[in-house]
């Protein structure tokens, strides 16, 4: 539940969240596309289209508005942020071409960094760091593979340890591994 008090004192309690999102996002996406979030007119097409918004308290329009107003903490700590299925329907229909879904991914990156993260996501991340895959290969899966006539172990990082090493080098270099391990330690 949102325990935030209603009153918003601009500047005293807000920051230039959009600038942060743009700075972070510019690593990946074209800035001129991301900054369309400034032009959001709160028409509600996004929320009206949202499959998750119908069944959870995930409210993409409100997140866009809170981002505009600079309510960073409130946005990051709201766990409904994680109910977006990234179906992109909102982004496809936004009349101002706001990159809603990609903005949600960026905000999630910031939430992840700030430690607002779900346990199962950390487990998926650990699995990836350890095996190169997001899920484990279990014995029953090996059996299945044999039954349909493919190699018992797929020709991926699971077969090639040097390839797994490469992936592990990369996740270290990007700082992802460190982030995940730290969060796992913190529990």
């Amino acid at each position: 539940m949102d325990s935030t008090k209603p009153l918003i004192k601009i500047d005293e309690e807000t920051s230039d969240f959009i600038a942060e999102i743009l700075e972070k996002g510019a690593q990946i996406f074209p800035k001129e596309e991301l900054e369309r979030i400034l032009t959001c007119i709160q028409c509600g097409t996004c929320y009206g289209s949202c499959p998750s918004g119908r069944i959870t308290a995930y409210h993409v329009r409100v997140i866009m508005r809170k981002a505009q107003l600079g309510l960073k903490e409130e946005v990051l700590k709201d766990e409904n942020l994680w109910n977006c299925t990234t179906c992109y329907t909102c982004q496809e229909r936004c009349p101002r071409e706001v990159e809603t879904t990609d903005t949600i991914r960026l905000i999630r990156n910031m939430a992840f960094e700030a430690g607002y993260v779900k346990k199962p996501h950390l487990i998926v991340s650990r699995n990836f760091i350890e095996t190169g895959h997001s899920i484990p290969l279990r014995d029953e899966d090996k059996e299945k593979r044999k039954r349909v006539g493919v190699s018992e172990i797929p020709p991926t990082t699971l077969t090639y340890p040097e390839a797994l090493k490469e992936v592990q080098t990369l996740v270290e270099a990007t700082g992802f591994k460190e982030k995940v391990l730290k969060l796992l330690e913190e529990g």
Partner: peptide
Amino acid sequence: EDTMLGRPIENK
């Protein structure tokens, strides 16, 4: 009010 959020707002 910020009617988009349905919350009071104060600005100096």
